Simulated assay, not measured.
Amino acid sequence: MTLAAFAACDARAGIERFVGESMGTSWSLQAVAPPASTLHGVEAALALVVEQMSQWEAESDLSRFNRARAGVWREVPDELAHVVKAALRIARASGGAFDAGLGRLTEAWGFGSAGAVDSAPPPTSASAARTIDFDRATRRIRRGEGAALDLSGIAKGYAVDLAADWLLDVGVRHFLLELGGELRGEGIRPDGQPWWVDVEMPPTASLAPWRIALHDLSVATSGNYRRGFSAGGQHYSHSFDPATGRPIVNGVASVTVLHRSCMIADGWATALTVLGPEAAIALADKQELAACVVAGDREYVSRAWRAMLD
């Protein structure tokens, strides 16, 4: 639910600006000639994603699905079904690096609705029962006994797409929309320039940020420095390796992916973070993804990323 928002007009640039809060973070919009309903429309799109996909809202569709009996097919709203389908597609293409069934692990490690923990939980074995299934014919989903649906690695990007699609539907062709660091730019600024954004670099890296023109393009970054906790003298990432059931220890600090869809960029940034730099770039090349991986003070970029520099 959006907590606060306001709109201001930059008359000189012909751009109206809106900001607010949703999904535990902030959002902002710069739009050229938006209608009076813009604030309400964007808020409604973000609220719908919270209502369906939040693991922090007890009555969200996702939370009710996780409380329901395992092994039973459940009907869910079209938007939730769409995101689950995309998550499972990325899971297959990444060899399981993306896992939408990690909800119990994220809760146990203090990254879910139960809140932070003071110590690392005991090791748990990866389980085949930690599965999420999708029935394309009926658009129903079910979970294995050890699974709980967690879409935190892809839902924020989908929220950007949903709000952006609403803006396009009502005739707003030129805008830059951002939610918690995930961005989508459409069209151009009134001065003829694209929407320029700087890619955030990890605070531990001395690398200069990339400057990207978002013209009908989205960008998402998964950063291990953003969330985590320390216990017993060790820092634990909020990114999990589904193969081990534990936070990753591969040295990746951040992954940035460019894609037409912010949801796809978000999901792939999450998956590539798990794989480690070399494997991530190899898979990005195979999938023809524009991706940049930062590990320490070194950058690894995919062929598609390099091609965009030409």
Rank of each mutant, 00 (worst) to 15 (best):
H82T: 14
N250W: 03
I154H: 03
W166C: 07
T221A: 03
W195P: 04
L207D: 01
S119W: 14
F229K: 00
T270A: 11
G267N: 00
G187E: 07
A91I: 02
R136K: 13
D99K: 05
W195T: 04
A284P: 00
E59H: 09
A97T: 02
E16R: 15
S239I: 15
V19F: 14
I264V: 07
A295D: 05
K85M: 09
E182I: 06
T273G: 05
V293G: 00
K286E: 08
I264S: 07
A243V: 13
D266S: 10
L207E: 00
A81C: 05
L168W: 06
G251Y: 11
F111Q: 11
G41V: 13
E107P: 08
P122N: 08
C9E: 13
A128I: 03
G14Y: 14
T204L: 01
I212V: 12
E43W: 11
G296H: 07
R142F: 04
G110W: 03
R303K: 07
Q52K: 14
A163L: 01
V72F: 00
D165L: 13
V49K: 03
R17C: 15
S125R: 14
A208Y: 02
V49I: 09
E145Q: 12
L167F: 14
L272C: 01
R67P: 06
G251L: 08
P35M: 08
V293T: 00
A280I: 04
S237K: 00
E51L: 12
D99Y: 11
D135F: 13
V219R: 06
S237A: 10
G245D: 00
I154M: 02
A86G: 04
C9F: 15
L48Y: 05
E278K: 11
E57Q: 12
A114Q: 15
Q55S: 15
V72N: 03
Y158L: 10
V219F: 01
R74D: 14
S125Y: 12
H235R: 15
G171T: 02
Q52N: 09
M308T: 12
S230W: 10
Q30A: 15
G96T: 12
A304K: 10
G223I: 03
S127A: 06
